[in-house]
Write a protein that binds this DNA or RNA. Sequence first.
DNA 1: CTCATAGGTGTGCTTCACACACGAAGGATC
DNA 2: GATCCTTCGTGTGTGAAGCACACCTATGAG
Lengths: 224, 224
Amino acid sequence: MKHTYEYPRPAVTVDSVLFTLRANDLAVLLIRRRKAPHKGKFALPGGFVDANEGLAAAALRELAEETDVTDVTLEQLGAYGDPGRDPRGHTVSVAYFTFVVAEAHPVKAGDDASEAVWVHWADIEGGNAELAFDHATIVHDARVRLQQRLDDPRRHAGFELVPSRFTLSELQRVYEAVFGRTLDKRNFRSRLLALDLVETVMAAQRTGRHRPAQLYRWKNSRKR
Amino acid sequence: MKHTYEYPRPAVTVDSVLFTLRANDLAVLLIRRRKAPHKGKFALPGGFVDANEGLAAAALRELAEETDVTDVTLEQLGAYGDPGRDPRGHTVSVAYFTFVVAEAHPVKAGDDASEAVWVHWADIEGGNAELAFDHATIVHDARVRLQQRLDDPRRHAGFELVPSRFTLSELQRVYEAVFGRTLDKRNFRSRLLALDLVETVMAAQRTGRHRPAQLYRWKNSRKR
DNA sequence: CTCATAGGTGTGCTTCACACACGAAGGATC
DNA sequence: GATCCTTCGTGTGTGAAGCACACCTATGAG
């Protein structure tokens, strides 16, 4: 396949926003940049799209290269193409996002990253963790979209919100972190059960120093 | 500003999906391609993003160049980057969409288009009007997003659905076309009025061969 | 005058969202 | 083994919103 268009044009990059729950707080997977520009700042895992590479594929590849995270389901957030967003030149970034169970995806820095860490939302929000480029905008937009997705009672998520076996309290904590407010336990449970997406796992409980919780799993076979 | 990245990479294009209401049917603004590939087929107005040009700006520029339509509010739909989507080479297209009042935006073909026309949804759906590239996918996605936008009772549209003075029946016809089904008149009106977005225009009616209709306008000054 | 056409209006039922409080089960400690 | 602490699990009532539904009104045409 030939490249017919050779004049100066924007380059295409991808960036991924991975959310998770850490210590009952929403967190985002970020890398610390090893190179200029924005050396030492936090940034979203991402990079250039190769010739003849799909966008989602590129996002997954870069995610794997920079953080060692694989097997996630990315959803497209949108394209960010402000000409000034990268001081090195005009780039258009296509952003993806998802929610994952951090424990299922151990993180390891690679490549351009000197570090790959889950950063708590409070640190992002509070300006405690400075983000490179326009990544603060992207992260905020991603959170809004995540909220919209969890709001919709129809296609209810599709993200990996909890492990394959989970208690309703665990799931509720995810929702509370995403929306940033507490939810009423009874309403949460009855609404969720009414959706008929979830079923109990028989003879399976778990322990703490209190009454054990009923375990559930998503109903339609496929892991969520 | 220098371009640091010179190896083969995808090019960036923009495409716009403009919806309108024609003869009580949803219609999309398309151009007929004058050049190969897909010569003679219908396509969305769009084209390459220039160096240091914003995405929305590029979409507006191409729209004006190819169809002579200006002064519209585009909303981003998403990026389409399948490597095989353009036989000439790898391009990533960022799609935009909106809804406009066709009468307010006279259409005139220019540039690469031998024609710029409003194509009825039925002709698109029925395969009667063949679309180039992956534009059929984009158009369908755009309609879904448009429906979602009109569904949301909060930010209620923001699109130019009707002229600045309009009857509730006119607005209802727009909704019916977008959703592809009839709506109950009383429910439509009471729900809309409950939103308090609309107000009557005094001493203003209009005629047909029947009882005149009350005219309305959007409440918060700004035209919608 | 009659008819055809679109405009305008109100009520009851059902559903959903939400606020809210207490007993149950187990572990830890004394 | 009694007590206490913690989280788990549950049902009802109230108000708001969604939805189905039918008839009279104002005008123009013939």
